[in-house]
């Protein structure tokens, strides 16, 4: 995941190094301001990464992400998969000795990544969130079958998970028709101009 321009190989010492002085200082400030989390307090004990249930799927473990943040690696951080894989279970923040709210940091980074139009580290997860949002805009509630079907269509993964889908359908856990609210126009007012429109 690390491009050549990101880490400059030090030929004498061997492993690549990050030149701290070349980092984007404003990046750290912005994350601290937006999230309200004092990221600088992290002393790299790695408790967060030890406890994270999904760390094995992440490109950077949470502690490494914080380190990159401290070094101002804006592009690297905003385009990573970790921020999308985080489900905000808060296992890390409940165990962090410095009581850092890591899921707030992750949410801030996701919002910043969208705003900066950074390459999305896990595009399928963003597709899913957008499908949920469209369902909310349309019905005021989530229509799970519709979300799943459109998500599958967008990600081209029709046959993955078919067995689970059928089981859920058989158990009447996926409704054919959406449960919709009566005053959908009130929800439309809430959504006005808020969602990124899909380009076909």
């Amino acid at each position: 995941m690390v491009g050549k321009g990101d880490l400059r190989a030090d030929h004498k010492a061997g492993p690549p190094v990050i030149e701290a002085s070349r980092g984007d200082r404003g990046f750290l400030e912005e994350v601290v301001r937006r999230s309200g989390v004092q990221v600088r307090r992290c002393f790299q004990c790695r408790t967060c990464s030890g406890g994270c249930p999904f760390v094995q799927a992440m490109d950077y473990p949470p502690n490494v992400l914080l380190r990159l943040l401290l070094y101002g690696r804006r592009r690297q951080v905003l385009s990573c998969g970790t921020i999308w894989l985080c489900v905000s279970c808060n296992t890390c923040s409940s165990q962090c000795p410095m009581a850092l709210d890591l899921s707030a940091v992750m949410e801030t980074l996701r919002i910043m990544a969208l705003k900066a139009r950074a390459p999305i580290g896990r595009p399928n997860i963003l597709e899913f969130h957008e499908e949920v949002a469209r369902s909310l805009e349309r019905y005021g509630r989530t229509h799970k079958l519709g979300i799943m079907l459109r998500y599958k269509l967008l990600t081209g993964s029709w046959f993955s998970d078919l067995d689970v889908g059928l089981k859920m359908f058989a158990k009447r856990k996926l409704e054919l028709f959406p449960s919709r609210i009566k005053q959908v126009h009130e929800v439309a007012r809430v959504f006005e101009g808020q969602l990124r429109r899909k380009k076909k």
Binding site: L114, A133, L136, G140, R141, K182, V190
Partner: peptide
Amino acid sequence: EDWNCCGSSSLPTLSKPASLGMAAR
């Protein structure tokens, strides 16, 4: 009466105002 979704985990990332509005309704 006529409740709507609370915003769930998806909306706060995509739009803070929308997720706030959904819960507020």
